[in-house]
Amino acid sequence: MSIDEDRGQDHSHGHSHEHGEMSELSDTQLRVRSLETVLAEKGYVDSAALDAIVEAYETRIGPQNGARVVARAWADPEFRRALLEDASTAVNTMGNVSPVGSHLIAVENTVERHNMVVCTLCSCYPWEVLGLPPTWYKSAPYRSRAVLEPRAVLSEFGVTLPDETEVRVWDSTAETRYIVIPERPEGTDGWSEEQLAELVTRNSMIGTGLAQRPDGKTEDS
């Protein structure tokens, strides 16, 4: 049997992106998706019920590095500079976090600019730092609307930005994954990195939320 060139790509580990701009699923992901499809077609599971179970554990999946990366960036200007320059290298020098791949880019929110990320769930999603993407994040409407009307999408998440703040939407590609560094909340002077990390929500690192405030209020949904 000959192998079609296009489909003969490396499906084993390593995840090179030599196949260009197409999506990629690992063998394990293929098995899980196949089971889910078959079980759904036979009426044993439905994806809404599965999503609900998975979402209940969403803070317990993967190393959840992102909050600590952001907290370090808030606390340590030197690290922040290094992170903005080369996020992968900066994260990998932290020592106490799991290594990340070489395509990570950090973008910082400021008064002048708010950053937001769109991508979908293939194996290039940086769940090592961001945790699991929420269900809405995987949906086609989010992706297209985030690009066309980011302010409307943000307001649905309870985030209203001043008119003068530019909203920049970053579309992940095979070569790039983004993490948003949200603005550090006021009233956190002198906080330790551990305390600061508690304020960094998943949505704030995607840009569909802001970091929690020290009084516990959040504009995350």
Binding site: R7, H11, S23, E24, S34, V118, T120, L121, R143, T173
Partner: peptide, 13 residues
């Protein structure tokens, strides 16, 4: 599913 992934541009569901 492999076939579907291979024909789907990165970034699309």
């Amino acid at each position: 599913w492999r076939h579907a992934a291979d024909r789907t541009p990165h970034g699309e569901p």
